[in-house]
Simulated scan of single mutants.
Amino acid sequence: MHSERQPVRVVIVDDEELVRMALRLVIDGEPDLSVVAEAADGNAAIAVVDEHRPDVVLMDVRMPVRDGLSATRELLARAEPPRVLMLTTFDSDDLVLGALQAGALGFVLKDTRPAQILDAVRTVADGEPVLSPAAAARVIAAATGPRSAHVRDVSREAAREKLSALTERERETARAIADGLGNPEIARRLCISIATVKAHTGNLFAKLAVENRVQIALLVRDAEQ
């Protein structure tokens, strides 16, 4: 748990001062999180990150001067990059996929509940990806696209066969991942510890032969289509 070590250092990047202020109030109210700096555009974000070396950058996508996707690409090309969580009011497919392709570990919408944003910051700080439910749904839709009935049938049977090898708890964890939940939220939904969630997730990676959570979500989606 982060409370057992130094607080996670966070930089907030958003061109709206009121948004930055609200996020700072929410984040600084947590004992395991601390806002160390703010920036209003992508260029300023790079300078601030170089100065403060945060653990997590909460990065707006659309900003004047330089957008968040461009700044994220530059930051993640560094030798010791921070973890980036993209934050936006927009939820179009190109932005979600663009953020992930830029190397961001997470993507949440600005109307996400504060508790979920805090969970997302913690999850990304632990080096694990997280998508809001809306973003997860769009990634899945964009990744699969229109398919013929035959292809859907084949994909459904293959996915169901893979998922049949899971325990009930592992299937519940996979369903929660497909819903876009981070580890703390999954732990609360299933009434288990975060360590147990991580163990189940590791089992999912091994049993399903996948490399990330989006692939788990895709399998769940295919099985249910």
Rank of each mutant, 00 (worst) to 15 (best):
I177F: 06
H150R: 10
G42Q: 04
T144I: 15
L166W: 04
G202R: 10
A44I: 12
N212S: 09
G202H: 03
R188D: 12
M1H: 10
A143S: 12
R160C: 00
T144Q: 15
V139M: 09
L75V: 09
M1A: 10
R189P: 07
D111Y: 11
L25V: 07
I140D: 00
S70W: 07
P129W: 01
Q225L: 13
V36A: 04
T201Q: 13
I140H: 01
A22F: 03
D67G: 15
L204K: 08
V65D: 12
R5W: 01
A102N: 07
G202E: 11
P129L: 05
T112A: 14
F205D: 00
R152S: 11
A217M: 03
V49S: 09
V214E: 13
A165T: 15
V220Y: 03
A71P: 09
S92F: 00
L131F: 02
V56E: 04
I194A: 14
L97C: 03
A174N: 08
L95Y: 15
D91V: 11
V197C: 03
G182F: 05
N43D: 14
A115I: 08
S193C: 07
P129M: 04
G182N: 01
M63H: 03
I27A: 03
V19C: 06
G145T: 12
R78M: 05
A142L: 03
L85Q: 06
V214M: 07
L69S: 05
E51D: 13
R20H: 09
V13S: 09
V96P: 05
